[in-house]
Design a protein around this nucleic acid. Structure first.
Lengths: 371, 371
DNA sequence: CTGAAAGCGCTAACAG
DNA sequence: CTGTTAGCGCTTTCAG
């Protein structure tokens, strides 16, 4: 079979009556590792049509628009498909229909549980609608994001999901030119590329900082991820400062630290801040992992929380409710973000207009024992 | 433009001299949400060829095999491509070449950081080779895995990555029939579908249990995820029992608990076990989140660790080094698994044979302060 | 409700 | 090194 030409192959296939006669070699063999022939050993729709005694158009309809085929014909076609173990070729289908049923999703890193949760819920909704996810990590580099998007676009996804709201000019051009729905998440903005599903990082950080101040803390420090190319971190820092201002407290640059995410980094930030200014009575970590790490450091050093210092987090990940003391944090509905993003995409793919392209899913300050 | 037929559209396109003349409407408009026309507004390779005064074959070569084209021609073609903002259509390319450059990856849930880490490192290696990831969650259901694989296969991925080693007969048939490289992870097995990259869960659990016993603990309990359809959990439980046997300790079913993963569940398991048998002096949690939750519960209840009870985890996630006391656990090289898996896939896609289709990445018992 | 025919946009022999 | 010529396997008008 390996050396037959295309038409001979076609004859060969049509000569086959039972699928068990198609002998496949083991992966280890030479034949397997050599370049695959047309179809890669897969049956074509044409063969299904022949067996069911209909045209390929009818097979296609039986699969895509079952209602447009008579009950009898449909049953016969589907039976043949089942018995033959026919797996349609969506690459060909996509080319012919200019619809791939693929959504490209880009996150800074899938390693961060916060993004993973959103992707997970989005993929659930999409899958129920027959769509698949092409996943990519942009890292924190805008140019990486740009090249990722360029290569993703070549696969003609039906829609794009991007976590992050800062893009290069070329990225924006590519996206607009693609003519497909785009949903951004990460932060609310009034000039979306297309659609946005998020909450206001500014308001959330401002709310938490205000809560701390109103609770009586006077020297409130702020720890976040790097603000470079990160609109979320920037907005949170602005929110923190706005709260300080609102309550007439002075902004002290020494109380603001940017570091990379992680337990260890949280502990280090705590140590650093206390060394810089021993009067700090509260630290707002814009991430629960940060805060949990700091909490553990307090445990190790015997620093009373919240007696000596209050600790607050951000995200309300599972760990927040379980630390000792339990962590005061900002709850963000990550799964809802994924679900809503998927729904907006689906709405547009169904040809319906989206009335509200900017969705604010909100947030909640959750008070626990660490403050 | 929306109402032109195909040939008129072609003429229209060829009449365009500057790309800025291609006016795209805003996503909100009717035109945008209506079904996209052929090409979705994208330029075709034919147009690039015309502008560069070469055939499409040459444009294709300039892109895929730059060396097979003269320097001058290549430069001209690439310049046109750049200036025109041409984005090739890989759907068409894939159909013609029967190569998609897509790897399908299936994990129980991307929400679990343990899988996320592997996927992250795999995607890094694949992307450098020009491959993209199609991601899917199988949940814990074998039939969901089967249907996921069936639909993924329709997209003709060049290879498949699956975390988990228990599959339905139909899943196995589909996979073998697909004729593409498959790498399984999760647990070592001597009858892989094709290739496996993992460590021995049995040996790892046995090693940790032995370590605890040799350290002097006599009533060692074991907590793991459900063993239903989960080869990893099963193997770990067998390893635990084997260690008990090896050291002449009796196996007590009351000391074995299966629950779902999570901080909270770990705390609950601790409480449950101590109620069942107050003489338990060590608990081996087959997951760091479990163990961390239990550690926190001990903190809350004032139970000395390891004085009153020893706690051990599994995975060596970041949190393990940061808990108080730091957690004794089993280190597993998750990123290496992803990297090696990607490498095996790439080797096979390059037509090279894989000498060792079963890769054991090993594990290490990490002793910290909780035992 | 069904079939024929014409592509979808690109790649890959095969010549030259 | 470059062009010509066939498709890749399906979907989709357009007829009937």
């Amino acid at each position: 079979m390996e050396h037959l030409d295309a038409s001979a192959y076609t004859e060969y296939v049509s000569a086959i009556k039972k699928r068990s006669q198609v002998i496949r070699t083991r992966p280890e063999s030479d034949e397997f590792v050599s370049r695959r022939r047309a179809g890669g050993g897969h049956m074509r729709m044409e063969e299904v049509a022949r067996r069911a005694q209909v045209s390929t158009a009818t097979v296609s309809r039986a699969l895509r628009k079952p209602d447009s085929v008579s009950d009898e014909t449909r049953a016969r076609v589907l039976r043949v498909i089942r018995e033959a173990g026919y797996v349609p070729n969506l690459v060909a289908g996509s080319l012919a229909s200019t619809r791939t049923n693929v959504i490209a999703a880009i996150v800074p890193t899938i390693g961060n549980p916060v993004f993973a949760e959103t992707i997970d819920s989005m993929s659930e909704v999409l899958r129920a609608a027959g769509l698949h996810l092409l996943l990519g990590n942009s890292g924190s580099s805008l140019s990486d994001e740009e090249s990722l998007i360029a290569t993703f676009l070549a696969r003609r996804p039906d829609g794009i999901f991007i976590h992050g709201g800062i893009h290069t000019a070329e990225t924006k051009r590519l996206l607009r030119n693609a003519g497909i729905p785009v949903v951004e998440t990460g932060n609310l903005r009034d000039d979306p590329l297309d659609m946005i599903v998020s909450y206001s990082n500014f308001s959330a950080a401002k709310a938490m900082t205000s809560y701390l101040i109103e609770k009586g803390y006077r020297r409130v420090a702020f720890v976040s991820a790097s603000t470079v190319n990160n609109d979320r971190a920037r907005a949170r820092q602005r929110g923190y400062k706005a709260a300080l201002r609102k309550h007439g407290l002075a902004e002290d640059p020494r109380l603001i630290v940017e570091t990379s995410l992680g337990f260890r980094e949280g502990a280090e930030a705590l140590v650093h801040l206390r060394a810089v200014d021993s009067s700090i009575d509260a630290i707002f970590f814009s991430g629960d992992a940060f805060a949990a790490g700091a909490l553990n450091e307090c445990l190790r050093q015997g620093i009373a929380v919240p007696g000596k210092i209050a600790i607050a987090g951000f995200d309300d990940q599972k760990i927040a409710a379980e630390t000792v003391p339990a962590l005061t944090t900002v709850h963000v509905p990550r799964r809802e973000i994924g679900r809503r993003a998927a729904e907006l995409l689906l709405t547009r793919l169904n040809g319906q207009p989206v009335e509200k392209p900017i969705v604010d899913v909100g947030f909640r300050v959750i008070e626990r024992q660490s403050t």
